[in-house]
Simulated assay, not measured.
Amino acid sequence: MSTADSTAARPRLADLSLSAMIAGLVAVLVGYTSSAAIILQAAAALGATPAQAQSWLIALGLGTGALCLALSLRYRAPLLFAWSTPGAALIATLPAGSTLAAATGAFLFSALLILICGVTGLFARVVERIPRALAAAMLAGVLVRFGLELFTSLSLAPTLVTAMLLAYLLAKRMAPRYAVLAALVIGIAVASLEGSLHFEHMQASFAWPSPVWPRFEFAALLGIGVPLFVVTMVSQNLPGTAVLRQHGYTTPVSPLISASGAMTLLLAPFGVFALNLAAITAAICAGPEAHEDPRRRYMAAVCAGLVYLLAGLCGAMIVGLFAAFPQALVMAIAGIALLGTLGSSLADALGAPAHREAALVVFLVTASSLELFGIGSAFWGLVIGALWLALARRRRGITS
C-alpha cells in the first residue's frame, strides 16, 4: 500500500469495523499491562510523589493517544505510537541520587535529539539502507517471544488458554475477521467463571497532570538523556518502522519521528520521558487480524488512540481495569493477535536464498534478548546480521 494511495482519500467512518476496534483495544491492553508497572518503578526511582507518578500515566496516555489519532488519520495508515518501555526500564535502574528535575531536563534533551533526527531525515536514510529480509527477521525476533508465551501460558491457565485457542480456530474457519474478538470474549468469560478477574484496584477518579520544572545538569544529560535517546531510536523506532514496511505501508518516516520528538518535548515536564513508534502493538493494528483490507487498518490505530486518550483522562481507573485481567489471558491474546504478522515476517525473512543465512542470524540474535552497553537485541541483531551479509557477499566475490 503506497503513501499516495493512503493519503489520496479522506478518512471515512465507513472504514471503521469491529475487528479494527478489537485490534486497537488489544493493542492498548498489551501496552499497559506490559509496562505500567515499569513506568511506576521508574517514577519511584526518581523520587516522584504519588501525584507525580499519576501525572506520568496521564501525560503518557494523552500524548500517545494524540499521536496515534492525528497521524493515522493524516496518512490513513495504522500508525501506532507508544512510550519507550526500554527507556522506562533504563530510568528504573538509575542509581540513587538522581532527581526528578534533572531527569526532566534529560527527557527534554533526548526529545530534542529525536526531533533533530526526524527533521534532518537522518533516521529515514539509515532505515532505507536496511535489506527487507533483515528487517523482517528483526521483527520476527521481536515478536517470537509472544508466540512462545501463547503456549507457555497453557501451563499457567490450561482451561482458559485452551478455550481461547479453540475459539480462535473455530472463528478463523467461520468468521476470520472476528477470530481475535472470539478468543478475547471467550477468555474473559472463562476468567470470570474461574474468578480470576480482579477489579478491586480500580479507582473511579480523575486526576490532573503535575508539572516538574526541569534542571539541566551535564551528568544527567549524558547519563540519562543520551542513553534514553539511543534506546528509543534503536529499540523502538527501528522495529516500529520495520512493522510498517513489513505490511507494505510506505508512510514517510521523518514526519513520524519529528512528531514523536515534538510531543515528548511538549509533555516532558509532566512525565513523558520518550514517545516513539510502537512495534509489538503496532503489529497488532497493522496485521490482517485488524482488517483484511490494508487500506482500512488505519482505523485500528485510530481506535487505539481514542482508548489511550481515555486512559490518560481517567488515569488510575483505566490502568486498574487493564490490571484486572489475569496475566495468562493477556499473554494468550497478544500471542494470538500476532500469529499472522509473525508468520509473514518469517516467510519474508527466509524467502530470499541470498539473504537467508544473514536473516536467520538477525532473527536468532534479536530473539536471544542480548543486551550490550544498555542497547537491546533488536539493534545488535541488525548490526551482526548486516556484518554477516557483507562478509558473505565478499566471500562469494572472492571465490567466484
Score class of each variant (00 low, 15 high):
344 S>W: 08
388 W>M: 14
111 A>G: 09
254 S>T: 14
125 R>A: 08
119 V>G: 03
265 L>S: 10
303 C>I: 06
312 G>L: 04
209 P>G: 10
111 A>P: 01
347 A>M: 15
180 V>P: 00
324 A>E: 07
172 K>H: 14
309 L>E: 02
35 S>A: 05
266 L>Y: 12
299 M>T: 10
369 S>H: 14
217 E>C: 12
67 L>C: 06
161 V>D: 00
173 R>W: 11
258 S>A: 14
229 F>E: 00
36 A>F: 00
359 A>R: 07
376 G>Q: 08
111 A>I: 07
322 F>G: 03
262 A>E: 11
131 P>M: 09
28 V>K: 01
151 F>H: 10
118 G>H: 01
46 L>Q: 10
330 V>F: 01
301 A>T: 09
387 L>P: 05
231 V>G: 06
48 A>S: 11
318 I>Q: 02
48 A>Y: 05
381 G>P: 01
375 I>H: 08
18 L>K: 10
354 A>H: 07
183 A>G: 02
9 A>F: 12
195 G>V: 11
289 E>Y: 05
117 C>P: 02
313 L>M: 14
189 A>D: 02
208 W>E: 11
66 A>K: 08
147 G>T: 12
261 G>A: 09
150 L>A: 05
73 L>T: 05
188 I>S: 03
353 P>V: 07
330 V>M: 09
